[in-house]
């Protein structure tokens, strides 16, 4: 299943950032909770994706001003990111319909 999800890591992250700006751990926790603990992204995957999306201009980052402990790096979605999100969602709908149709098997009597 993780192989199938891998292609959608970008979109999952974009969907989270669509709600509000977030930082690595918080975002990962939200994903884990929303999926009922079934899906948790590895930190390595998470940060690689952040960096790829940022250099593509789909998200931007800024440092929080925490007074105690380490600073947090927050990510925010950009217009380009929103467009990519919508595009990926449309793709997914098409894909889902096709697979649903194709997997509808009935044994002939």
């Amino acid at each position: 299943m993780s192989d199938m999800i891998r292609g959608y890591t970008d979109t999952i992250i974009l969907a989270q950032l669509l709600r509000h700006d977030s930082y690595g751990y918080e975002l990962n926790k939200a994903v884990a909770q929303a999926s009922g603990g079934l899906l948790e992204l590895k930190e390595a995957t998470l940060y690689t994706t952040f960096r790829r999306l940022e250099s593509a201009g789909c998200i931007r980052s800024y440092w929080g001003d925490e007074t105690t402990g380490a600073r947090r790096r927050y990510y925010a979605i950009t217009e380009l990111g929103r467009a990519l999100y919508r595009e990926n969602c449309a793709d997914w709908q098409t894909f889902k319909t096709i697979i649903d149709t194709l997997l509808q098997g009935e044994e002939e009597p």
Binding site: Y23, Y25, E43, Y47
Partner: peptide
């Protein structure tokens, strides 16, 4: 340095959780 700081903060928070 930025990646290190980002990782460090997030790992600490996870650990404390």
């Amino acid at each position: 340095l930025e990646l290190k700081e980002e990782l460090l903060g997030n790992m600490r928070e996870r650990y404390e959780d």
